[in-house]
């Protein structure tokens, strides 16, 4: 579905990605892991057009989308839930959702979509007419995901959805991601909370300072990790959590 080949990206003089290649198949949940500054967010930004890669190609559903504008890429069916949620704080929850459906608005379907979102995220129904800025962190994260889903994406990309949330809320978010996956949504998930992400994922990529370090299934990663524990700085007992 999504194929990235030899992607290079940089911020000014600093190269953030060195020839990254990865693939996401339809219906998969792929986790992209790595420490801070490994290039995870850069990868997502390059896919969705916020950052223009310096070289390499991004192909989606057989069509090259490298260097297209964010709005064009969204219309192809890729939706990003950005890091830090990026809720429009001065807009109401309702308006945030309405913008989510900007590209594919259809009056009949819109009501049904809203109902579906209320089912997934009941809190949004209560907050429907409040400004996004008044929502708590967890509520904002739910709104950000709902907003992204409103465009009926073929590929949903989540950038650190659990960042800055309390453990209970983290559980909630991961349950939600599992639910989305069951619905058949293809997901590319970037996470620092590696263990939880690996647990959910069909396949895993690990980035380190812009280079691909591992690509494979969660099982393969477990095996490698036993050897690589020292390298990754884990505690050697299978708890790899945030240190990964």
């Amino acid at each position: 579905m999504l194929t990235i080949k030899d992607l290079n990206a940089s911020y000014g003089a600093i190269t953030a990605l060195h020839g990254l290649s990865l693939e996401v198949e339809e219906g998969e949940l792929v986790a992209l892991l790595g420490t801070n500054g490994a290039g995870k967010s850069t990868t997502l930004k390059s896919i969705c057009g916020v950052l223009k890669p310096t070289s390499g190609t991004v192909t989606f559903l057989g069509e090259e989308i490298t260097g297209k504008t964010p709005e064009a890429i969204l219309r192809k069916g890729i939706s990003l839930v950005p890091e830090g949620r990026e809720i429009f704080t001065s807009l109401t929850v309702s308006e945030n959702l309405r913008l989510g459906a900007f590209s594919s608005y259809n009056k009949k379907r819109y009501q049904a979509d809203l109902e579906e979102m209320f089912e997934l995220f009941p809190i949004l129904k209560d907050r429907f007419n409040q400004p996004g800025g008044l929502l708590s962190g967890g509520e904002q994260q739910q709104l950000a995901i709902a907003r992204a889903l409103m465009s009926h994406p073929k590929l949903l990309m989540l950038d650190e959805p659990s960042l800055g949330l309390s453990p209970t809320l983290v559980n909630q978010i991961f349950d939600l991601i599992a639910k989305l996956r069951e619905r058949g949504t293809t997901i590319l998930l970037v996470e620092q909370n590696a263990e939880r992400a690996v647990h959910l994922a069909d396949r895993v990529y690990v980035l380190n300072t812009g280079n691909l370090e591992f690509a494979g299934t969660p099982d393969q990663l477990e095996k490698e990790l036993d050897i690589a524990d020292v390298y990754f700085g884990g505690d050697g007992e299978g708890h790899h959590e945030v240190t990964l």
Partner: peptide, 24 residues
């Protein structure tokens, strides 16, 4: 109007607005 909402959103967070499919 949706255009009005998009304009307010763009004044708040321009790049995120584009991520909603709103043409810059």
């Amino acid at each position: 109007t949706v255009l009005g909402i998009a304009m307010r959103a763009a004044a708040d967070k321009f790049t995120t607005t584009r991520l909603m499919g709103v043409q810059a």
